[in-house]
C-alpha cells in the first residue's frame, strides 16, 4: 500500500483515465479512422478504375490501329489492282488501235495500187487508140494518092486489124 501511495495510484483517477481513453477511442474511431480509411479506399478504387480505363483505352487504340492497318492494306491492294487493270486495258486498247491503223493503211494502199493499175490501163488504152488513129491517118495520107478508094479501104481495114492484133 505504501508503494501505491508513493506512486499516487488513485482509483478515481484510474477510472477517469480509463473512461477518458475509451471516449477518445470511440470519437477517433467514428470521426478520424472511418473517414480516412473510407477515403483511402475510395482513392484506391478510383486509381484502380483509372488504371482499368487506361488499359481499356490502350486496347481500344491498339484495336483501332490494327483496323486502320487492315483498311490501309485493303485500299492499297485495291488501288494496285485498279492501276494494273488500267495498264492492261491501256495496252489492249493500244494494240487494237495499232491493228486498226495497220489494216486501214493496208486497205488504202491496196486501193491506191488498184487505182494506179486502172489509170495505167486506161492510159495505155487511150495511147493505143491514139496510135491507131494516127497510123490510120498516116496510112490514109500516104496511100491516098497511090491506091483507089476500094484498095485504100481494104488496106486501111487490114492495117487496123493488124494494129488491133498488136494491142
Amino acid at each position: 500500500m505504501e508503494i501505491v501511495k508513493e506512486f499516487g495510484l488513485n482509483p478515481y483517477l484510474l477510472a477517469a483515465q480509463i473512461v477518458n481513453f475509451l471516449i477518445i477511442l470511440y470519437i477517433l474511431k467514428k470521426l478520424l479512422y472511418k473517414s480516412v480509411l473510407d477515403m483511402l479506399k475510395k482513392r484506391s478504387d478510383s486509381i484502380k478504375e483509372g488504371i482499368k480505363q487506361a488499359e481499356e483505352g490502350r486496347l481500344t487504340l491498339e484495336k483501332a490501329l490494327e483496323e486502320e492497318k487492315k483498311i490501309l492494306k485493303k485500299a492499297q491492294d485495291q488501288s494496285r489492282k485498279i492501276v494494273d487493270d488500267a495498264n492492261t486495258q491501256a495496252v489492249s486498247i493500244s494494240k487494237e488501235i495499232e491493228e486498226n491503223s495497220r489494216k486501214q493503211a493496208e486497205k488504202i494502199l491496196e486501193e491506191a495500187k488498184r487505182q494506179i493499175e486502172q489509170e495505167a490501163k486506161d492510159t495505155e488504152r487511150r495511147l493505143s487508140e491514139n496510135v491507131t488513129n494516127l497510123s490510120i491517118e498516116l496510112i490514109k495520107k500516104s496511100v491516098g494518092e497511090l491506091f483507089g478508094e476500094r484498095e485504100q479501104k481494104q488496106l486501111i481495114e487490114k492495117a487496123a486489124k493488124q494494129l488491133s492484133k498488136k494491142k
Binding site: Q17, N20, I24, I27, L28, L31, L32, S35, V36
Partner: peptide, 22 residues
C-alpha cells in the same frame, strides 16, 4: 494535460472529418 491532449485529438478528428478531400 489529459484534457489538452483530448482537445487536440478531437479537434484533429473533427478537422479531418469536415475537410477530408480526395
Amino acid at each position: 494535460d489529459t484534457i489538452i491532449v483530448d482537445v487536440l485529438l478531437i479537434a484533429l478528428a473533427v478537422y479531418i472529418k469536415k475537410n477530408i478531400k480526395l
